[in-house]
Structures are given as C-alpha cells and as structure tokens.
Nucleic acid binder design. Structure first.
Lengths: 110, 110
DNA sequence: ATAGTATATGTCATATCCGGCATACGCGCT
DNA sequence: AGCGCGTATGCCGGATATGACATATACTAT
C-alpha cells in the first residue's frame, strides 16, 4: 500500500466514517476505504448484537483484544483479510457481506 | 468450480474441495475462501474485458505481472487487500463487488 | 474511593506478504 | 525449427501485519 496516502488518511482521521473524498482519493482508493469502513462497522454491530466482548471474539479468532479494537476502529494496520475473518467468525455469510456493501450508510438503530 | 482451479487452490495450500467444502472447512473459512475466489474470478473477467494484459494491470497497480497472475489464481500468498485493490483498479465499484458476492456461480459467457 | 469490566492505544519480535526477477509453459505465426 | 507474446511458478530480500503484552481510559457498582 502506498505509504504516503496512508499517512494522509491517518492524519485526517479517516476512521471518522465521513466522506473519504475530501482528500484527493482516486475512485479505487475510495472504494477500498469505504469497503473497509463498511466491514468494520458491520463487524462491531454483529459482535455487539451477539453479546460478545472484544476479548471473547478475539479468542475465537485466536487473536487479541487489541487487534479486535483496531479492526473495529478500521485502523490502517489491520488487513481486510483479518477484518473479514472476524466478520465471518461472527456468523456472517458472503451474502451478508454483499448486503452491507450494497446498503447506504445508516444511523444505528435504537 | 472447475477442476483447474481446485488443483491450483490445493497446490497453493488451501484445503478447499469443490461443492463439498464442508469437508474440512468451517463456515467462516468457507466464506472467506469463496469470497477470495469470487473476487479473483471477477478480477480476471474485468481485466480481460478491458483488453489488458496482466503486465499492463500490474503497471497500474505498481505491482508485477507475477503478482497479478497469483491474484487471478487465488494464490494463498495474495491478500484480500491486494486482490480488492486490483479489482477496483479495473474500475469496479463497491456495488459491483456486492453484486459478484451475491451472484451464484455462472459459466463464462461466450 | 476502590475494584472490576470493557474498550482504546502504543510498542515490539516475528510471521506473512510484497515487488521483482528468472524461468518455464503455451500458443500462434513465419 | 525458431520467435514473440501472454501467462504461470518459484524464489528471495525487504516491507508490513500479526499476536501478545502493557498501559490508558471510561463507566458501573459497591
């Protein structure tokens, strides 16, 4: 991954979930960032719905609580592979993934 | 899944069977492998449709022809990050991604 | 105020992935 | 037979993500 752009992203706090197009992001980069954001948000939703703590999910993944926190923060240091592995570990299916990529951003339900 | 791909997967270290994925794989692992396969196949489709060689796409990605070959072979050594970056670099959108994840496997059109 | 629980953040050694290169394979063409 | 082009495969040194751990923060309950 291009280190320069990554830095810019981090500096701008792209985990805020706002539009990534303030920065001079190309369409590909935007799509990738949005995909990551969509999965990390969905992961958190599913974990919380399942009543799991970050530590509990980490154990399932043979990972660590801190990694899970970073996944949900869409930290630049976590890969999509790990993100998806965690997402699927909550019981999500490929179809679920397709749905969250399709769906427009939406405020959390009460 | 055609026999070719299955062989390549196994050779690359995946324990994936074809329709009988349930053999050794948990649901999460299956979902992850299927996602990788879906993206790599879609990547190849888009590249070929665009009339690009692997080398040309590699140049766009600042990667190498061999990496692109491995992406399309769903080689275990390529990450989903790289796979998706390549996919989006062909002009695909997040919505396109959702579609290929949704869609059932289908024979290539003439 | 203290303890307990959940989450966030930073660092580090090492495991994994990366681009690049060489090379092999296949196929059409002369 | 060669040649050129596109693709596949194997390997390597360097780059990056990983789990583990320590620590910080926040909130609840006693």
């Amino acid at each position: 991954m291009d280190a320069h752009k990554k830095k810019r992203l981090e500096a701008a706090g792209w985990s805020a979930g706002s539009a990534a197009d303030f920065l001079g992001l190309s369409a590909e980069e935007t799509a990738l960032v949005e995909t990551r954001l969509a999965v990390s948000a969905a992961l958190r939703d599913r974990r919380v719905d399942a009543g799991l703590t970050q530590g509990a999910l980490a154990k399932r993944l043979k990972s660590s609580q801190s990694r899970v926190a970073k996944m949900e923060a869409a930290d630049a240091s976590v890969s999509l592979d790990l993100l998806l592995r965690a997402y699927f570990a909550t019981g999500a299916t490929k179809h679920d993934l397709a749905k969250i990529l399709m769906t427009r951003k939406r405020r959390a339900a009460a």
